[in-house]
Computed example of a mutant assay.
Amino acid sequence: MMDFYSTIIFVVKFSDLDDIDLRLLDALQDDASPSNQSLAERFNISPPTCLRRLRRLREAGWIESQVVILSADRIGPLLTAVVEVSLDRQDASALDAFEQRVAPDDAVQQCYRVSPGPDFVLVVTVRDMPAYQALAQRLFTNDANVRNVKAFFSIKRAKFAPRVPLPSLA
């Protein structure tokens, strides 16, 4: 059993964020690798204050994760597809079941429920067409509730920016 005092949960509403919080979040979206010292200097705050702010933002869920984005060009040929999926049944349990089945798959980079049109749009990345065929078999063909799948294969990536827009950075 967890001790009441052992865990501090921060709830930070958007209205609780100040300009420095927003600027920290904005900077980290561009590059999450700077040290705490470097960020503190950049935003003219003390390192302990910077560390406290970042910890509060992380624990409140504003910072979901920090990742390294690899250069797809360096890895070699990859096949990226935007896939539209329509289901026969669209009740809440059927939508949830499909989402819970496809979201954990490593090839699925993004999964969106959409409306109107198809029920889901997925962004998938695989090594080649045989790998896409295996993915399609695993995620779509074996699911009796999948009615229609339409895949659009990327021939060139013109932009990739996983940035979330933040309100007014004065």
Rank of each mutant, 00 (worst) to 15 (best):
F10N: 14
V11R: 07
K13A: 14
D16P: 00
L17E: 02
D19T: 12
I20R: 03
L22Q: 05
L22T: 07
R23S: 13
R23H: 09
L24R: 02
D26F: 08
A27K: 04
A27W: 00
L28H: 01
S33H: 06
S33R: 09
Q37P: 00
Q37C: 05
L39P: 01
L39A: 06
T49P: 01
T49C: 10
C50Q: 05
L51H: 01
L51V: 04
R53I: 03
L57I: 07
R58I: 08
E59C: 03
A60S: 15
I63A: 08
E64Q: 13
V67P: 00
V67R: 11
V68E: 13
I69P: 00
A72W: 00
R74Y: 02
G76T: 12
G76E: 13
L78A: 09
A81P: 00
A81L: 11
E84Q: 10
E84H: 07
L87F: 10
D88M: 11
D88G: 09
D88K: 12
D91F: 03
A92S: 13
D96L: 14
D96R: 15
A97D: 15
Q100I: 06
A103Y: 05
P104K: 11
A107Y: 01
A107C: 10
C111D: 09
Y112D: 08
R113E: 06
P116N: 13
D119Q: 09
F120I: 10
